[in-house]
Amino acid sequence: MFGFWRETRLMMVRNLTRWARNPAWLMVGLFQPILYLLLFAPLLDSLHMPGVDQGNTLKSFTPGLLVMLAMNAGFAGMNILDDLHDGVIERLRVTPASRLALILGIVLCEVLIALLSSLLLILAAVPMGFRADWPGIALLFGLLVLVHTMMVSASYAVALAIKDSNALAAMASAITIPLLLLSGVLLPLTLAPASIRTIAHANPFFYVVDAARALASGEFGNPDVLRAFVIVGALAVLALLWATRRFRQAVA
């Protein structure tokens, strides 16, 4: 067990170092979500929508943005393709280290950076008038760990299977856009016809968005919260196992 966490940490540090060496990359990753907030949130103020508390658009939109960020993690697989093509993954695979530990270290590095970016986003929202229940936000970050783990792992699994960054980017867009529209992040699904609402129930992000909004208001007892944790937790484990399986077989 000690060996497992050591291997995970070694891989995490290796990838964090790589990020740190590329400041431009890091800046875009960290500050892009704030741009969303600055450019999109003001539009919400002048909207009049049923089902949205008029005085509180920021309170509903900010948690949504955090979830939207997690969808961007669908593109994370591009980062592993360089390693695959340079033979780094094969080199790692010839060591006796646990395959799960190796992939988990890389995934956790991405998750850590995403959480940092989420934190910056929350901090930027406060001066704009965002008020939230802070213990709720803390628990929301716990949910975000699972959401990011799920997305990053799935993206790695697909990347290692198709081995082509262009194909991965096309696929990630094709999948994340419907996930986004059917999650209620941008506009509440209460506006949608019944048929679309039914489809949305198959989207894990639909539950995540509900849970995120509930947590931001401090509604710990809301059943949406538990439901999101269970659904996303299970999917995160499955995605991680899937990525490990692809990693085990990955050949340059």
């Binding site: 790589r18 094969e90 280290a97 190796l102």
Partner: peptide, 22 residues
């Protein structure tokens, strides 16, 4: 192909490989 990580230093590459070997 070799398998060295070109975005890291030679020493970092070696340290990681040695430690992953236990």
């Amino acid at each position: 192909a070799g398998g060295a990580d070109v975005t890291a230093t030679g020493r970092e590459n070696l340290m990681l490989q040695a430690q992953l070997h236990g």
